[in-house]
Design a protein around this nucleic acid. Structure first.
Lengths: 339, 339
DNA sequence: CTGAAAGCGCTAACAT
DNA sequence: ATGTTAGCGCTTTCAG
């Protein structure tokens, strides 16, 4: 039923070795035989089995990508860039959404290992670090994306979260805001963004109230809920640094629901610069991650690893850039006219 | 280096056949030996090669998914649902973004065939129908998603575009709009939505001007451009039916740029109900596609096909539902005060 | 320039 | 209850 190398060989009147050679552009042979084989391959619509090929020593030419959630715009945009770059480099990508769930992470990791992917890109923050240690021992190349881990000794590609948090906060402080809430996730990158947030406060010598730091998980709904918490504070902040666009949008909606106008009554800055940042009104000021660059880099790194060009395991930090749009403005102290 | 079935067999002191049996839960054996093997598998961190297994007759347990663009929220949301359902059913999904580009469609199709996926879900509208015909002959099961093709004789799962277009337009007409522009893509589904748009006009006995039908490709930018065309018409429409949320958002932004207020000056309705519809202000009235149901169905269908439960090749049409939010309002005839 | 043959890791009869 | 063995489709020496 399935056409195999034998079918091609037979019909072309050559041996399977010859067919294999024309597929792989290896060895020499008469142009006439090459042509003959090529023609038969077309006629028969022969699609060489990648499995068979991989089984007999070749690579699978496929990469595994573990991300929290492909339906999250940040990750889907990233996945797309990764897919494109991978294909430019002759590899394909198997994408898996883990929801940052330990169980799923484990299962998907195992799945990808069984599929014998040539390498892995891990953008899901494994809570069970042991899995990663085992992975390291398994000698399957992998690189971390969107996160870094110094103890593991693998290369990682991510955005400079500390500086991103710093820049976001500086932007707000520079506009005169001194009471800035931050809505963060429970992730290492959010942690660094919080440090950046603190650093900026220090730089401006403004007090950084502990209870202005709010934690949640990423979703519009949670962003809305956090806004409520923020509004209910005795001294309401005049600005919010949301650790990603999704949360920022939730905050925007929560604010609108309460009749707060943005950016007049409250400034909001996001993080990521996904497509979502372009859809709000006013559009969202946010810290842009260089998704394209990061994707290209992560693919190039993993391919280098696969090809055995052993590099010093580096931590690559891309610089985020402030993208000022409409949701941030000067603190005008008229927020006391509210409520 | 890689641990194989032989390593396990040797260390457990059994034959590879026995190991294979415990992996596949087939055949009988002493509990003690099963346990012994299981333990060794753990110790050695043995991950059975799916390739080898598939090569020797078993399925690959993987599905190919061809979509236009994973970074498009509609498709990423769909991909996620598909991924989840597939995993519930014990299959994994290989996702590919084609950009509806003939070249990429061909390449990805070939890639997936080489990977010997058990089945394909095709949500990219192949412009080269011959590829699909060949695919049909290759006996690799596939189902169409988001589109239907009666001549192919394959089952398809999609939304009732005709009715969606009809409902969207009826909604607008029912609010008193009689000059409604439609921004459509050059796709079969848009075509059906246009028919629905016509049908609604007929139902309301209002004239349907040909030049109110605008074509473009899906993007926010194009949505903005189309709005410009619309605004420049001698008799400016009071409502727009955008054939997807992305275009609708572009239209919204274009309108805002021109100082038009929504929905007072112009009503806009989208299609899809992606996350984007929730992020605009006001949030977008749109025709919701039952993404979850469609995803579940498409997976169930393809798996049935793979398992040889040959069903009558059916055209499954899910009903879309009007989701009224803030961008549509009654026509108030005050649009003549503009400009 | 071309072919024969030995694997690659696993499954599935068929033996024992 | 377990083991032997012949493939699965392809790559790759090694001969001819």
């Amino acid at each position: 039923m399935k056409v195999t190398i034998y079918d091609v060989a037979e019909k072309a009147g050559v041996s399977i070795a010859t067919v294999s050679k024309v597929m792989n552009h290896t060895g020499n042979m008469r142009d006439s035989t090459r042509l003959k084989v090529l023609n038969v391959m077309n006629e028969l619509k022969y699609y060489p089995s990648q499995m068979a090929s991989a089984l007999s020593g070749k690579k699978t030419k496929t990469l595994g990508l573990l991300i929290p959630d492909i339906s999250n715009p940040f990750f889907s945009e990233m996945a797309r860039m990764i897919e494109d770059r991978a294909h430019e480099r002759g590899m394909s990508v198997f994408m898996c959404s883990t929801d940052e769930d330990e169980e799923k992470e484990k299962n998907y990791l195992e799945l990808l290992l069984r599929k014998r992917v040539d390498g892995l890109i891990i953008a899901s923050t494994f809570h069970d670090k042991d899995l990663l240690k085992e992975l390291k021992e398994s000698h399957v190349p992998f690189v971390l994306l969107t996160q870094t881990d110094r103890s593991l000794g693998v290369t990682s590609v991510s955005v400079d979260d500390f500086n991103g948090g710093f820049e976001a906060t500086m932007h707000l402080l520079s506009k005169g805001h001194t009471n800035i809430a931050i809505i963060a996730e429970n992730t290492p990158s959010s942690k660094m963004r919080i440090y950046g947030y603190r650093e900026a406060h220090e730089r401006y010598k403004v007090d950084c109230k502990e209870n202005n730091i709010i934690r949640t998980t990423s979703s519009i709904k949670n962003g809305m809920e956090c806004l409520q918490q923020i509004v209910e504070k005795e001294e309401m902040p005049t600005a919010i640094f949301a650790c990603n666009d999704l949360i920022a949008i939730g905050a925007i909606q929560g604010a609108k629901d309460r009749g707060l106008s943005i950016p007049d009554d409250i400034s909001i800055i996001g993080f990521d610069d996904t497509i979502l940042a372009m859809t709000t009104v006013p559009s969202l000021t946010t810290i842009a991650q260089p998704i394209k660059e990061m994707s290209d880099k992560v693919i190039d790194v993993i391919i280098d690893e696969i090809e055995g060009k052993v590099l010093s395991r580096e931590i690559v930090l891309f610089q985020p850039t402030l993208t000022e749009r409409g949701t941030t403005a000067d603190a005008t102290f008229h927020n006391d006219t509210l409520i």
